[in-house]
């Protein structure tokens, strides 16, 4: 019964010619900067790729002999298993950060300013403590004489509980490191969602949980994606946390690359391990981005 006669027409803001000129200006401004970025970001990647194809010839760091041997080594089962473990830990700790971080981010984004400021401060403070010190902290908590072990023994469990040197310990410590990386972009994204939209959902019969899942999560998707990317890319490249908390069995790609550079002086193998890791990371990131829908329709 209503007419749609009142549809307002949208008029394009600028003509095609203006757009061309703007494009030219942008190229002039951004061009040198782009070249600079390419030089400082592209050159190291290029060198890394070049080294990864060179034959290791000690005591020189690398030689000018071309070889695929490094990639054969980097993709043998021993290293593939390690890559899978690396991806698994990075993904699990990212997911754990989402689960812990989302409610926290929501709370901070919807808190009065002074509460939010204090919360943010508490959240960011651990970033100022090195991961080495934080790992030592986890040794105190998770160790055989640590808080958890003592509590478990007080409850009647037999002997010291061994939590250190497990994937759980590494994932837990990484989740703690990742939390601010996850929460900060989420807070920024949730703050931009009008409170009215939540109220609208509630007035339409959404329970608080449903408001969160149906409204907050899809509308803060950009923050979620950047938080996950930050956590995941940090997660696949960590060295200190698995070295100190993972023991012999939970070593990750960063540990292997590091020791190939620092201990074995085998830069070509280190470079190819790093490149395989980078490719796996790019593939999993692309897969994750491709899987998450951009808009949803009436089938929510």
């Amino acid at each position: 019964m209503m007419s749609s006669a009142s549809v307002e027409q949208r008029i394009p803001a600028s003509s095609a010619r203006q757009e061309r000129r703007a494009g030219l200006n942008l190229a002039l401004i951004a061009g040198p900067y782009g070249l600079f970025l390419l030089a400082i970001l592209g050159a190291p990647v290029f060198i890394l790729v070049a080294i990864s194809f060179s034959k290791h010839a000690p005591p020189a760091m690398w030689s000018s002999i071309l070889s695929l041997e490094n990639y054969q080594r980097a993709t043998e089962p021993f290293y593939l298993e390690m890559f899978v473990r690396t991806l698994r830990i990075a993904i699990l700790s990212t997911v754990a950060s989402v689960i812990v971080g989302y409610p926290l981010a929501y709370f901070l984004a919807r808190s009065p300013r002074n509460v939010a400021t204090i919360g943010m401060f508490l959240l960011v403070t651990p970033l100022m403590v090195s991961t080495v010190i934080r790992s030592f902290g986890w040794i105190i908590i998770l160790g055989r004489n640590g808080l958890i072990s003592q509590a478990a023994q007080a409850l009647g469990f037999e002997g010291p509980v061994r939590l250190l040197y497990t994937e759980f310990a590494v994932t837990l410590a990484l989740t703690q490191i990742f939390l601010p990386l996850m929460v900060l972009p989420l807070v920024a994204a949730i703050e931009r969602i009008p409170v009215r939209v939540e109220e609208a959902a509630a007035s339409l019969g959404s329970s608080p949980l449903s408001v969160f899942l149906q409204v907050i999560v899809p509308l803060s998707r950009a923050g979620l994606v950047s938080g996950c990317l930050l956590c995941f890319t940090t997660g696949i490249s960590v060295v200190v946390t698995p070295a100190l908390l993972g023991g012999r069995s939970v070593r990750m790609a960063g540990n292997f690359v590091y020791e190939q550079v620092v201990t074995a002086f085998d830069w070509p193998l280190a470079a190819s391990l790093a490149n395989v890791l980078a490719i796996l990371a790019l593939l999993s990131t692309a897969a994750a981005l491709g899987l998450s829908p951009k808009t949803s329709s009436g089938r929510s």
């Binding site: 009008p194 009215r196 939209v197 109220e199 609208a200 959902a201 339409l204 019969g205 959404s206 449903s210 149906q214 409204v215 899809p218 509308l219 998707r221 808009t295 949803s296 329709s297 009436g298 089938r299 929510s300």
Partner: peptide
Amino acid sequence: ALFPHLDVLGNVAFGLRR
């Protein structure tokens, strides 16, 4: 306070789905 991530039909059907 429409839901920007849902299309028009999705907005109107939202309460029904809940």
